[in-house]
Design a protein around this nucleic acid. Structure first.
Length: 553
RNA sequence: GCCCCCGUAGCUCAGUGGACAGAGCAAUGGACUUCUAAUCCAUCGGUCGGAGGUUCGAAUCCUCCCGGGGGCGCCA
């Protein structure tokens, strides 16, 4: 991408200036090239002179002047200027800029891809909500972030596997099974209370009904006896099916659903990690429990792996699960996306990964702040145990997958977000996703009209694209590869909706100021080429977020 | 008490070492006989929570304080 070229020019200029004896010899720091905030400062800016003024024992402006004299010529760069207090500013060539539309259209759906992750296998795990209830709005945020990140990382060349970790073991599942059996018995007229800390939600009744429909009274046992384990398993399976369906409504699909219970088979990952930890001296026994001696590894405390009642903790499963990811399946990188309430879990999992033979530094845990659901100013409780359960399905069916995804992706993961149902269901121009999609529909409309008039961009003379609005749009088109790279390196997906909005804005301004189809055939051709490039980039941006790009609205 | 995240325009949020702090929405005033007005243009709006410090340069880094959220050895 062009920014890398500019960076290279700066490096070459420094080397040449040093060889010419105009700047003393020293190893240069990292070269930073950025977009100046103000257009008058050019398209790209290097702060190198300011950063090396001390090393060079020269004034920054003198350094900048020396560098400027040695910047090699480049077809994309029209001019290089020195600006106080010591910036080196690069101005793109208008004709070169316009010529990029051809390159963009040629790349098509592959535009802004790269090979920076080529050859690396990456696993990304997200949502992984307990299968004891439907996924809620907060899970939706993790789902949108995770699935988008997976797409972007694939675009950057990583071999990505998306996974959902099904917590089908442990106490919550047992409580789920007891609740289900109570509901099931109720369907047959028995007066049975659901367990005290069970799951009161209506969905449990529906699952019980599904089971009754398929299996009639097969799971009914004499009064007072416990349910057959099979009933609980069946219930979990039905719950997982529903979670899968709900997530698909948000256009989220996994490569694999990984069962927690599968870790605990004889000689499986769970017993394997316990053996490894024991061998390496990371186990202590105290107060009847088995602990991971993480305080020896710099953690603030030890953590329980097996409770005094003999039941392994969630943490123990997680260690086994990450052992499976890193050691057994050999992923080069692993990304976990968790709600911020799991924050305390991060460092101990990393420590454990390293302790069982992986590398905790190859694990990135992305935390997103929880979502506050609102109706206007009123806060709606999300808890699975509260009376009103607002599921992800409810929200998606109200506002649509496009708007839901755009909403979830817009704020940075570290910011808490309010999801206002009232605002999101209002399908008005306040909703930014329509603004972006409308740009795509407008472009499609013009292109189809051009096609019907047998006009095309073939043989377009792109150098005619000199209007300010055209040039601004062109600059925006060139930005997507940088945005993608930023998402890859920061794992922050919120840059995508922001970019989509600013790209749409540049297009709408262009649309207002420049008529595409006119009697001026050469200009019409050039502008059709620009439209094709814009549609390519806009569609690509939306596709990375799994948001649809409508032909008409 | 300790740890993590957040605090930026009326609201929702970008910007996390660069040049005079931005966007959307809201508010106010304009623009359609023209390829989609779900659009565009203009105006209004900020002691960047507070105080010190580091730096050529701080919303950004460091220290302390205030406010909101989350977490802290046998829940997940």
């Amino acid at each position: 991408m062009i920014r890398d070229d500019v960076q290279r020019l700066v490096v070459e200029a420094l080397t040449a200036a040093q060889q010419a004896g105009e700047i003393p010899l020293f190893a240069p720091p990292e070269i930073q090239v950025e977009h100046p905030a103000r257009a008058e400062h050019g398209d790209y800016s290097a702060n190198l002179p300011l950063r090396i003024q001390g090393l060079a024992r020269m004034k920054a402006l003198e350094v900048a002047e020396a560098l400027r004299r040695h910047v090699p010529s480049h077809p994309a760069v029209a001019e290089v200027r020195v600006a106080p207090p010591g910036f080196l500013n690069f101005y793109l060539d208008a004709t070169w800029l316009a010529s990029q539309v051809t390159a963009i259209v040629a790349e098509g759906a592959a535009y802004a891809g790269s090979s920076s992750g080529a050859g690396q296998r990456l696993q990304i795990e997200y949502v992984s909500a307990n299968p004891t209830g439907p996924v809620h709005v907060g899970n939706g945020r993790g789902a949108a972030i995770g699935s988008t990140l997976a797409r972007v990382l694939r675009a950057a060349g990583y071999e990505v596997e998306e996974e959902y970790y099904v917590n089908d073991a442990g106490t919550q599942v047992a409580v789920f099974a007891r609740t289900l059996y109570a509901r099931y018995q109720q369907l047959f007229g028995r007066t049975v209370e659901i367990p005290e800390n069970g799951y009161p939600g209506e969905y449990m009744v529906q699952i019980a009904e599904q089971i009754r429909e398929r299996h009639a009274d097969r799971f009914l046992r004499p009064v007072g006896e416990e349910a057959s384990p099979e009933l609980g398993e069946l219930g979990i399976q039905l719950m997982v099916d529903q979670i899968r369906d709900d997530l698909e409504l948000l256009r989220v699909q996994y490569d694999r659903w990984f069962s927690e219970r599968s870790l605990q088979t004889e000689g499986g990952p769970y017993s394997e990690v316990m053996r490894i930890l024991e061998e390496r001296g990371h186990i202590v026994r105290r107060e009847g429990a088995v602990w991971f001696a993480s305080s020896q590894l710099g953690e603030s405390k030890d953590n329980v792996l097996i409770r005094s009642d003999g039941v392994p903790t969630y943490f123990a499963s997680d260690v086994a699960y990450h052992y499976d990811k890193f050691v057994l399946r050999g992923f080069d990188r692993v990304i976990d996306i968790w709600g911020a309430d799991h924050q305390g879990h991060v460092s101990r999992v990393k420590a454990a990964v390293t302790a069982v033979g992986g590398d905790g530094d190859h694990l990135d845990v992305l935390l997103y702040q929880l979502v506050t659901l609102k109706r206007g100013t009123e806060v709606v409780p999300l808890s699975k145990r509260a009376g009103e359960i607002v599921t992800l399905r409810d929200v998606v069916s109200e506002v649509g997958a496009d708007a839901a995804r755009f909403f979830f992706l817009s704020p940075s993961a570290g910011s808490t977000m309010d999801f206002d149902l009232e605002l999101a269901t209002r399908q008005s121009d306040e909703n930014p996703v329509y603004y972006v999609q409308y740009a795509h529909a407008r472009i499609s409309s013009i292109l189809s009209r051009a096609a019907s008039e047998e006009l095309s961009s073939e043989g377009a003379e792109t150098s005619l694209l000199t209007h300010d609005a055209e040039q601004a749009l062109l600059r925006k088109l060139l930005l997507l590869p940088e945005v993608v790279e930023q998402v890859v390196s920061s794992l922050e997906t919120h840059h995508l909706p922001a970019y989509a909005q600013s790209l749409a804005q540049s297009f709408h301004v262009f649309y207002t100021q420049c008529r595409v189809i006119t009697d001026d055939v050469p200009l019409t051709k050039a502008r059709l080429a620009l439209l094709e490039a814009t549609r390519t980039v806009l569609a690509r941006t939306l596709e990375l977020m799994s948001i649809s790009a409508p032909e008409q609205m």
